[in-house]
Structures are given as structure tokens and as C-alpha cells.
Design a protein around this nucleic acid. Structure first.
Lengths: 211, 211
DNA sequence: GGGAGCATGTAACCTGTTACATGATTTT
DNA sequence: AAAATCATGTAACAGGTTACATGCTCCC
């Protein structure tokens, strides 16, 4: 997979391993990332397979760069990959995994975790909005561009924004639900069950039948 | 990470490796999964660390089961992990990675990919809704339950649903945007640029400055 | 002098997937 | 008779992270 992300970036413009590393911090980085320790060996492999070519670009002061360019064969493979239908993939989400187990935490701690995570997502949403603003300032809005590269870039960025908004909305909703839940359970059986758990509580619930 | 998912499931009820495998297909499986080839060795490791205990349960016809239970030490580690704040993690999304490169595909193929993916997500949304319906039928609604386990289960399931809805809405929006884009570019420069790409087009765009 | 940025690489390790391997029972 | 379900495991490989390793320039 990584190879295709690299090939796509090289199609836009020849780049060094170092340049690629930076690309994975923004734009394409919303959907795929890699460390330099993974990028450099992958570039070698791509070169040995004839999908990219390298050329050394010496610079007087800085270290010599190796600029990689995509080959015709590389572009072919990239396009062929694009034509394949991707499977529905299942993401992993550590926060939600924890949330699944929050009945073991005292309610205040659980709420704090959610609130904290909300703040992280809000920060990322802001940085996405900032990115969107910059793209629009440079290249014009989605509605006016005639460049397909810009167009698809804007679409994917929009997805990243929609995703963050959904996450934040869920956090708000979850916090509200928890507030209601605590009020309800407190009034139903008083002090004896002060909230939603603690380590000592015993549960032998039937599993959910989720196909 | 996997170890904590396993410990949480074992806290609810003692399970075999095989049972765990099935759990990862639903409920907790929305956020974390594992194959049996990963589960069995992990259970051994957990046992050797004293976080779970195993007991053999022979059955007359079926193969002998190994039932694993969480220990006090295991529960401690689980709760400690829950208290740690998870980092904002960056998911990988193959479909969006492709989308990022769709300027290399002809517009009809790109649209087809999106429509196909939309269908997959819709299917998953339906199965989530079905799961929600079943949970409500068995245990009552989120608004009425007094059980913290059920409560947090319902919250996470709701997230999975919200996520799928966002994805589907994005697909619809993207298809509409593409339609508009194609009309606009067709009318602006006629036949010469028939849509958004093809393999031969040359682009040397500046990179996006996405911090 | 210290830190950040440029620039490239390797090695050890951990995680996860695919494939191999077995064997009984139940359902179609 | 074939396929699915129960049930457990191992081995080879692929993908990814962390840490190690180097060295130069520019800015504070």
C-alpha cells in the first residue's frame, strides 16, 4: 500500500525520501503515513523493480539529495491499483476500545477521558480547517477549480474534516448521555450503586449477539 | 493493545480462544480485531504473566476447551491501561488514499469506485442498525438501561453508526461534486480536456503547505 | 554552545496476516 | 458426500515502530 502512496506523490513531482517523509505529515498523511525508516528501504525496492528512478542531486552545503521519479512502469502499476476495488476495511480505534471498557472506571475519569479526547480532535479539526483555508487562498475554492488534482485533494480533505466533526459530536453526545445515565441510576437505587462501576463489581452478562 | 481487548472480554465472562475469536467479529470488533493465530499465542503470554488463568473443560463430543479467566492482577493492569490517555491516532484509509489519486482515473471509473464503496458502507450500516435493534430488544434502550456495561456498549455502537453515516454522506456529496466539476470543466474548455485525467496528463503542481 | 532542520540510512523488535496442520461432529 | 462449525495450534512472512547512527548548516 505504502508503495502506491509514494508512487502517487512522485507522479506529482520528483521527490527525495526526506521530501516524502514531509508529505506524509499533511495532505496524503490524513489517510496514510510512514516513517523515514520505512520510506528509504521502500524507495530502494521500487527502484530495483523499475517503478522509480533515482538521480543524485549534489548541493554545495546541504547533504546530497537523491531525487526519485516515477517511471512509465510505475505509473502503470499505480493506475492498475487504482482500478481495483478496495475492501471495506475495519479501522482500529484505541479510544473506542477503552470506551467499551469504561464501566470499569469511575464515571468522572471516564468523562475526563472523553473530554480530553474531544479536545485533541478539535485541535486536529482546526488544523484541517487551516489547511483548507490555505488551499483555497492559493488555488481557489472547490467550486471554481478546473484542476482535477486540486479537486480530488479538496474532496479528501473535506472527508477528514467531516470525520473529525462526527467524532467531536459523538463526544458531546456521549458526555450528555453519561450525565443523564448517572442521574437516572443515582435516583433509582440511591447510594448503593454510586455510578457505573469500580474495580470490584461483578458482572456475568450474556454476550451480545452481534452476528 | 490486543491484550487489553482480551482482558476486557474475559472480565465479562470466562472464554476460550475460540469464543474470543467470535467476539472480535461483533461488538468490540468494531474497534479492534484479531485472528485466532494471534489470539492463542497472546493468551499463553497472558497466562505466563499471571494476568489470566486457564482451565481445561473436557466435553464428550467436542474438542476440549481451554477456558480462560481474568485474574486480579489482570484486572489491575486493565484498569491502569484505561486510565492512560490515548494519543490521537491516525487511521489509514485505503479508499481515501485512492481517492487522493483519482485524477489519474477516468471520471466514470472514479465515480464507480465511490458508488461501490458507498454500497459497502451502507451494508455495514444496516448490520450495525440490526445489532442495535437486537440489543434493544434484549436489554432495553440506552435511555432506560441501568447497566453500565450495556450503557457503554450502546455508546460505542452508536459511534460506529455515526461513522458509517458520515462516510455514506461523504460519498453522496463527492459524487455530486464530481458531477458539477465535470459539467463545469466540460463547458469551460470544451472537448480538449475531457474530464479529469487519464494516464498521460502531466502535472508539476506545487505541494500543498499542510503544516 | 545548543537546538532545529536537512538528509540518509540500518537493526532490533513488535504486530499482524496468510498459510499450514489436524480432527471430530453436525448440517445440507 | 461435501461443507460448515467447533477447537487448537505453528510457521513464514509482511508491515510498521523505535532506536541507533552520522554529519553538516543555520539561527538563537
Amino acid at each position: 500500500m505504502l508503495r502506491f502512496a509514494i508512487l502517487e506523490l512522485l507522479h506529482r513531482k520528483p521527490l527525495s525520501g526526506y521530501d516524502l517523509k514531509k508529505r506524509f505529515a499533511g495532505s496524503v498523511g490524513f489517510f496514510w503515513r510512514a516513517k523515514h525508516s520505512q520510506i528509504y528501504p521502500e524507495l530502494r525496492r521500487l527502484e530495483s523493480e523499475g517503478l522509480v528512478t533515482a538521480s543524485r542531486v549534489p548541493h554545495e552545503w546541504r547533504p546530497t539529495k537523491k531525487l526519485y521519479s516515477i517511471t512509465a512502469k510505475g505509473l502503470e502499476e499505480l493506475v492498475q491499483w487504482l482500478r481495483e476495488r478496495p475492501e471495506l476495511q475495519a479501522g482500529k480505534d484505541e479510544m473506542m476500545l477503552k470506551c467499551f471498557a469504561f464501566h470499569l472506571l469511575d464515571p468522572a475519569q471516564a468523562a475526563d477521558q472523553i473530554a480530553h479526547h474531544r479536545a485533541l480532535h478539535l485541535k486536529r479539526l482546526d488544523s484541517h480547517h487551516e489547511a483548507e483555508r490555505q488551499v483555497e487562498a492559493r488555488h481557489g475554492s472547490l467550486e471554481s477549480t478546473g484542476d482535477p488534482i486540486l479537486f480530488w485533494n479538496a474532496l479528501t480533505l473535506h472527508y477528514a474534516i467531516a470525520f473529525e466533526k462526527t467524532y467531536i459530536a459523538w463526544c458531546d453526545w456521549a458526555l450528555e448521555q453519561q450525565r443523564v445515565f448517572l442521574e437516572r441510576t443515582a435516583s433509582v437505587d440511591g447510594v448503593s450503586r454510586s455510578g457505573s462501576g469500580g474495580v470490584g463489581s461483578e458482572h456475568q452478562k450474556e454476550e451480545f449477539a452481534l452476528s
